[in-house]
Simulated assay, not measured.
Amino acid sequence: MKVLKNNVTKIILASLIFPIVLIVVGLAVRKGSANSIWQALGDLLVFVIAYLLNWKYFRQRVYWFNGNKLASQLNTALPAIIIIVFLNSAMFAVPDFKVKLRVIVICLLVGLAEEYIFRGLLVSLFLKLLHNNILGAVIGSSIMFGLLHLINLRSLPIGYVSVQVIFAAALGILFGTIYIKTHNLSIVILLHALRDMFPMFSDKMMAQVSKMTFSIASLYVTVVFLVITLVIANTQLKNFEIQKE
C-alpha cells in the first residue's frame, strides 16, 4: 500500500511503538508483580520490535557508534553533559543516595529503546520528510519524544505531565543535535540513561517525585530551558550539512 511507504505514516507508526507496547505490557502484568523487572522487559521488547520493524519496514540506517574525532564529538555533547551534571548534582546530597545495579540496567534499556526510536529512526525519517532540514528534523523528532510522555496521564495530573512533555522535548533537541553531528547513538543512549538514573538511586526522592504537583513556576523554568536548548541546537547546526554517502 502506498500510504505505508509515506514518511508521515512511518513517523506516526514509529512514535506509537513505545506507548502501545508499554500499555499492552501494563495490561498483562499482574498487580503486585515486580514493576522494575516488567519495566526492563517492556523496554527491551520495545527495542526488539522497533529493530525488527526497521529491518523489514522503516529501513533507516542507525549509527550506533563512531570512533572518529571523539574529542569533537564530546565537544558537541558538552552542553548536554553540563546540563545533565547540573540537574543530577543535587542527588549526591540526598541521605539515602545509593547506586543500584538494577536501576542502571533499567535506565540503559530505557535509553536504548527511546533513543533508537526517537533519534535513530525518527531523525532520519524527518530528514527525508523535510528534505534534509536538519533543525526541523531535530525539532520534529523531539516533539514526538515529548508527546510520548503523555502516557503518564494515566497516573499523573495534566499540569505536571505538560511540564514533562516540554522538558522531554527540550532534552530531545539536545540529543537529536548530538546524534546528527556525531553519528554516534551510543553517546545519547548513555546521556539519556545518566539523566534518568540518578533520581532513582534515592527511594525518598522517587517518593517525592510521585507526589509532585503542577506549578506555574516550574512551567516557566521548563519553557526557558526549551528556549535555551533551541538556541544551542541552532548554534551547533548552523552551516552544518548532511554528508552524502
Rank of each mutant, 00 (worst) to 15 (best):
residue 172 G to Q: 10
residue 199 P to I: 03
residue 205 M to Y: 11
residue 146 G to T: 11
residue 167 F to Y: 15
residue 165 V to T: 05
residue 148 L to G: 06
residue 135 L to S: 05
residue 140 G to N: 10
residue 148 L to M: 13
residue 168 A to K: 10
residue 207 A to W: 12
residue 145 F to I: 06
residue 160 Y to N: 12
residue 191 L to H: 08
residue 191 L to V: 07
residue 149 H to S: 00
residue 202 S to I: 02
residue 205 M to Q: 14
residue 203 D to R: 10
residue 160 Y to V: 14
residue 147 L to N: 04
residue 180 I to V: 12
residue 174 L to I: 01
residue 138 V to Y: 00
residue 153 L to A: 11
residue 184 N to S: 07
residue 146 G to A: 02
residue 201 F to W: 01
residue 172 G to Y: 03
residue 174 L to T: 00
residue 148 L to F: 02
residue 204 K to G: 12
residue 169 A to T: 14
residue 149 H to G: 03
residue 145 F to L: 07
residue 210 S to V: 14
residue 135 L to I: 04
residue 138 V to F: 00
residue 193 A to W: 09
residue 198 F to S: 04
residue 140 G to Y: 04
residue 137 A to N: 03
residue 136 G to S: 04
residue 145 F to A: 04
residue 181 K to R: 15
residue 156 L to W: 13
residue 201 F to M: 01
residue 168 A to H: 14
residue 205 M to G: 08
residue 161 V to I: 06
residue 177 T to H: 05
residue 189 I to W: 05
residue 146 G to D: 09
residue 206 M to K: 11
residue 193 A to M: 13
residue 149 H to Y: 10
residue 135 L to W: 03
residue 178 I to K: 04
residue 197 M to E: 09
residue 183 H to S: 12
residue 199 P to L: 05
residue 146 G to M: 03
residue 178 I to V: 14
residue 171 L to H: 14
residue 210 S to M: 14
residue 190 L to W: 02
residue 163 V to K: 02
residue 148 L to T: 03
residue 185 L to I: 02
residue 151 I to R: 10
residue 197 M to F: 12
residue 208 Q to V: 14
residue 198 F to C: 10
residue 179 Y to E: 08
residue 164 Q to A: 08
residue 189 I to L: 05
residue 195 R to V: 10
residue 206 M to G: 09
residue 161 V to R: 08
residue 168 A to Q: 14
residue 177 T to Y: 10
residue 182 T to R: 11
residue 177 T to D: 08
residue 188 V to G: 01
residue 199 P to F: 03
residue 205 M to H: 09
residue 176 G to K: 01
residue 196 D to I: 09
residue 143 I to N: 12
residue 206 M to V: 13
residue 152 N to P: 07
residue 191 L to I: 06
residue 199 P to T: 08
residue 192 H to I: 05
residue 185 L to G: 01
residue 159 G to L: 07
residue 208 Q to A: 13
residue 194 L to S: 06
residue 174 L to Q: 00
residue 150 L to Y: 05
residue 178 I to E: 10
residue 149 H to A: 06
residue 159 G to S: 07
residue 136 G to Y: 00
residue 157 P to F: 06
residue 179 Y to D: 08
residue 186 S to L: 15
residue 136 G to W: 01
residue 198 F to R: 11
residue 136 G to A: 03
residue 170 A to E: 09
residue 149 H to T: 07
residue 204 K to N: 15
residue 142 S to D: 09
residue 153 L to K: 13
residue 166 I to G: 02
residue 159 G to I: 07
residue 210 S to E: 14
residue 166 I to F: 03
residue 196 D to P: 01
residue 149 H to P: 02
residue 155 S to N: 15
residue 199 P to G: 04
residue 208 Q to P: 10
residue 173 I to S: 08
residue 166 I to L: 07
residue 210 S to W: 07
residue 170 A to K: 11
residue 184 N to K: 04
residue 156 L to V: 14
residue 149 H to N: 03
residue 137 A to K: 01
residue 143 I to K: 09
residue 189 I to D: 02
residue 163 V to R: 05
residue 175 F to S: 04
residue 161 V to E: 03
residue 193 A to R: 09
residue 141 S to M: 09
